[in-house]
Lab assay of single mutants.
Amino acid sequence: MSGIALSRLAQERKAWRKDHPFGFVAVPTKNPDGTMNLMNWECAIPGKKGTPWEGGLFKLRMLFKDDYPSSPPKCKFEPPLFHPNVYPSGTVCLSILEEDKDWRPAITIKQILLGIQELLNEPNIQDPAQAEAYTIYCQNRVEYEKRVRAQAKKFAPS
């Protein structure tokens, strides 16, 4: 494992614990031996107030490669969400998460999670990743928002 990646992720964890947006979660997972795995984080993004996503808490896994922060983490909703920019596998399609697009090593975990929260309610229809959600979003916004509200209710924190 890269010392650069681990040191950056340790800084990220410290900064997150000191200050993070209300309702968001970002925690490194534990290895079988109980030690912390900084390369694999369990996160959760709350649906934004005043949107059909409100009330939901959407679980996301963030996986970092050894060359982080040169390369972005892979962000994957578990379980996958109904959304035009979420692949059926759950992987998020967002330009700041793509090395050859808008990724920059200075982007923080907090910025990534806030960017994904923004994307939930403002899909990028130029870059669809899920045919069904994309089609319904474009053709029947009322039905799309109904499905999103049902999903938010399903993923409401207990």
Rank of each mutant, 00 (worst) to 15 (best):
Q151R: 00
V142Q: 12
F24K: 01
G23Q: 00
Q117T: 12
K74E: 15
K154N: 09
R141I: 11
G34A: 07
A131Y: 11
S95G: 02
T108K: 14
D127R: 02
H83C: 03
E12A: 00
V148C: 12
N37G: 12
K30R: 14
K74G: 15
Q117H: 13
L119G: 02
F64G: 03
W103Y: 15
E99C: 13
T91I: 14
H83Y: 00
I109V: 12
S70R: 09
P32W: 12
W53H: 01
C43P: 07
D66Y: 08
R13D: 03
G23P: 03
R147Q: 12
E143M: 12
I96M: 08
I4W: 08
G3V: 10
P21A: 01
T108R: 15
D102A: 13
K153S: 10
K18D: 03
C75T: 08
P72N: 13
M1S: 06
G47F: 06
H83T: 14
K65P: 11
R17C: 00
G3P: 09
K76A: 15
K59G: 08
Q151G: 06
L97W: 09
P105F: 01
I112N: 13
T51I: 03
E122Q: 12
Y137F: 09
H83K: 04
L97P: 10
I96P: 01
I45T: 10
P79T: 13
K76C: 11
I116L: 15
F22C: 01
L81A: 06
R13V: 01
L57Y: 07
P84A: 12
A150Y: 13
P88K: 11
V148Y: 03
Q130R: 10
P46G: 07
D19T: 15
A129F: 00
D102S: 14
R61E: 10
V86A: 08
Y87T: 05
W103G: 03
R147N: 05
D67R: 07
L81W: 02
C93R: 02
P28G: 15
L9T: 03
A129Y: 05
K59L: 11
N40T: 09
P21V: 00
A10L: 10
P73M: 15
I45R: 06
Y87D: 01
F22A: 05
G3K: 10
A10P: 04
S70V: 09
Q126R: 14
K59T: 12
S7N: 14
M36Y: 07
R61P: 09
W16C: 06
P157N: 10
P72K: 04
K110I: 07
P123C: 04
S71E: 15
D127F: 04
V25E: 02
K14A: 02
K59V: 12
E12M: 05
K49S: 04
G55H: 13
P46T: 06
P79L: 12
I107D: 10
P88V: 08
P105Y: 03
I112E: 04
A156S: 10
G115K: 00
P157A: 13
S158A: 14
N40W: 05
P79D: 14
H83M: 02
N40V: 12
P128G: 13
C75G: 11
F58V: 08
P105Q: 03
R149P: 05
G50H: 11
E132S: 07
F155A: 07
A152L: 01
K59F: 13
A156W: 09
A133R: 04
Y68M: 05
P128E: 03
V148S: 03
W103Q: 00
E78Y: 07
Q11K: 11
T91E: 14
A106L: 07
P128R: 11
V25M: 10
R17A: 01
K146M: 14
G34W: 07
L63R: 13
P28T: 01
V142T: 13
P80Q: 09
I107F: 11
G23D: 01
D33I: 03
